[in-house]
């Protein structure tokens, strides 16, 4: 993959909850068309980093820049409008709506009509609605849910729910898409399918930030991996170099593991 220009740039980002520093002076960037993996043991600050990017709470220090423009302080719906969409660790579909309507909600920020044309039933409002429905159908085909178009959202399988969230996030025409442990709870064949879809998303030039515990899934997808531990970044390197990085091994397996680990190949990390 030829990574494009930097889309999002995070620098000196910190977040404290009371006495706990959940994210501590973290910096990294994601480029257009790149899949960046974000890993670390439980409690390392991955989800907090996600939530800071999405504007769920303000950072204590640091900056998050999109195309060079600061976004810290913007509420979540404005950040979505800037082109950052996400999926959730636990599926969060709109249960009272059809599969197609769920995806159409994802396109909310791409609509420009306002409420007055809707009330007047103008031709433009109607053609926008038709175009939106068509786009939603195309995305449903793209993620492979064509068969489930009329299925109630509540009867989708967990894996299908994940695909629905992916289509819904894509409908917003994101420039950066955040996946929070997308492979968790999927069957092996669903993992393969989702992996292909994420690859396809990056190929469209969309930046992808991926939190994942399934190393097999992550390593085959990510072009670069950032490792967090106790809120701090301990590595930012190519996947093959991450495997042998002593700091990463220590973070995951404890001190004892480092003694036996091959430290020679670790030099590529965090350089």
């Amino acid at each position: 993959m030829t990574a494009g220009k930097t889309f999002i740039e995070i620098s000196n980002l910190s977040k404290r909850f009371g006495g706990l520093t959940a994210v501590d002076d973290v910096d990294f960037e994601v480029r257009e068309g790149e899949v960046l993996g974000l890993i670390g043991p439980n409690g390392a600050g991955k989800s907090t980093t996600f939530n800071l990017i999405c504007g769920y709470y303000p950072a204590n220090t640091g900056s998050i820049r999109l195309d060079g423009k600061e976004i810290i302080g913007q509420p979540p719906h404005k950040i979505a409008a800037l082109g950052i969409m996400r999926t959730f660790q636990h599926n969060m579909p709109f249960e009272g709506m059809s599969v197609t309507e769920n995806v159409m909600v994802g396109a909310h920020t791409t609509l420009h009509g306002g409420l007055i044309p809707v009330l007047l039933g103008t031709g433009r409002a109607r053609s926008e609605e038709r175009a939106l429905r068509k786009k939603a159908d195309e995305l449903i085909d793209f993620v492979g849910l064509s068969e489930e178009r009329d299925t109630p959202v509540t009867s989708l399988s967990f894996g299908q729910g994940r695909l629905l969230e992916t289509a819904r996030a894509l409908a917003g025409e994101p420039r950066l898409i955040l996946f929070d442990e997308p492979a968790a709870g999927l069957t092996p064949s669903e993992c393969v399918r989702l992996s292909e879809i994420i690859r396809g998303i990056a190929d469209r030039g969309i930046a992808v930030l991926l939190i994942e515990h399934d190393m097999h899934f992550l390593m085959s997808l990510a072009e670069r991996v950032v490792v967090l531990n106790f809120g701090s970044k301990i590595a930012d390197a190519l996947p093959q170099d991450i495997r042998n990085n002593p700091a990463v091994i220590q973070a995951y397996l404890g001190d004892a593991a480092v003694i036996g680990a091959d430290t020679e190949n670790g030099s590529g990390a965090d350089a």
Partner: peptide
């Protein structure tokens, strides 16, 4: 009926079903 079948009605139902997800989709809750 008009507003229900539009983006606005969908935004309302999205908030009813899951406000957090609706905000993440760009809906001003």
């Amino acid at each position: 009926l008009r507003i229900d079948r539009s983006w606005y009605g969908r935004a309302c139902r999205a908030i009813r079903d899951n406000g957090e997800a609706a905000a993440a989709m760009g809906v001003d809750v």
